[in-house]
């Protein structure tokens, strides 16, 4: 049975949207409490390393990309795409030792994001953000100061466009929640008069959401990146063919969501969801027992 309250470090997680990482850029990111540098060579190849030069511990994200190498800002050591140091300016004639290598993590660039794993990833590649495999556009990345599992709960709690405090939730919204679980996913179904909202969380951290409001349907995905034990980033992806207007509206809704995120997460949203899961399990157990 899937547990929404457990984050598996042995998985692919998105660390940055592909479009944000231009050729020649190096940026600091975090994954499961580790500081990483993600950088792209001039040839367009993305790499994810520990953000620490093996020489003196300088953060490599402060380095510079030249052609297909990353140069540390402190002593100018040059690292190739495979993490091995190829040049030490203090000793231009010296062939650097094989020990002079940055810690390299598994990386995959697919579905519009650069994905990494701080362990040996279980699957060959990450699942597409939209389950039907439609091409996605990365709209925005939110950094929220809540536990990664609470970030998932936030994404499932209500439609993205409803995070404005001025708009109260429709009457009976919270009570309408219906839970569905299987080995890979947890789904919440919400209902109001003319609206239906479905949020499905897949391991390790994708939440697919659909809001149907009368004849209008909005679909998006949140890709969760556990940055630390009490922090997460959530990447919002929509179908690439969505209108620019809709992308902009969701982008603005993200800002509102982050504003509310820490307050809402601390009011026990996750605890409520966990209780709901426990209740469902108990109910299922009784049912299966009754069948026997």
């Amino acid at each position: 049975m899937m547990r929404i309250d457990s984050v598996n470090p042995w998985s692919w997680y998105p660390v940055i949207a592909s479009g944000v990482l231009g050729a020649g850029k190096a940026l600091p990111v975090s994954l499961n409490g580790e500081e990483l540098v993600v950088w792209r060579s001039r040839d367009g190849v993305a790499a994810v390393w520990n953000n620490r030069c093996p020489h003196r511990g300088m953060r490599l994200a402060f380095g510079a990309v030249a052609d297909n190498t990353l140069t540390c800002a402190y002593h100018g050591w040059v690292f190739e795409n495979d993490g091995f140091c190829s040049h030490i300016p203090a000793h231009p004639q010296l062939k650097p030792s094989a020990a002079a290598r940055a810690r390299v993590y598994p990386v995959k660039e697919i579905h519009g994001y650069v994905w990494a794993s701080v362990g040996e990833p279980a699957g060959a590649e990450p699942a597409p953000p939209l389950r039907d495999g439609r091409r996605v556009a990365a709209v925005r990345t939110l950094h929220v100061p809540v536990k990664p599992e609470a970030a998932l709960a936030l994404a499932m709690a209500r439609p993205l466009a409803w995070w404005t405090p001025a708009d109260p939730l429709p009457a009976g919204w919270q009570q309408s929640a219906e839970l569905e679980m299987n080995d890979n996913a947890v789904t919440l179904h919400w209902k109001a008069a003319s609206q239906k909202f479905t949020a499905t969380a897949w391991l390790p951290g994708t939440v697919n959401c659909t809001l149907i409001d009368g004849a209008q349907s909005t679909e998006y995905a949140f890709l969760m990146q556990p940055t630390g034990t009490a922090s997460a980033a959530i990447h919002l992806a929509v179908a690439a063919q969505d209108t620019a207007q809709r992308k902009l509206a969701l982008n603005q809704a993200c800002v509102q969501m982050r504003r509310e995120a820490s307050a809402l997460a601390s009011t026990g949203l996750l605890a409520w969801l966990q209780a709901l899961v426990a209740e469902k399990r108990a109910a299922d157990a009784i049912e299966s027992h009754a069948e026997v």
């Binding site: 020489h55 003196r56 511990g57 402190y74 030490i88 000793h91 002079a100």
Partner: peptide, 27 residues
């Protein structure tokens, strides 16, 4: 600007925590 970007902040003293080269003899 460099010092505040080094990890960890405490100086590692055991061999092979960092990989030095010839010019690091003093270090």
């Amino acid at each position: 600007s460099v010092l505040i970007q080094q990890l960890p902040k405490k100086l590692p003293v055991k061999p092979r925590r960092d990989i030095p080269t010839i010019s690091d003899a003093t270090s």
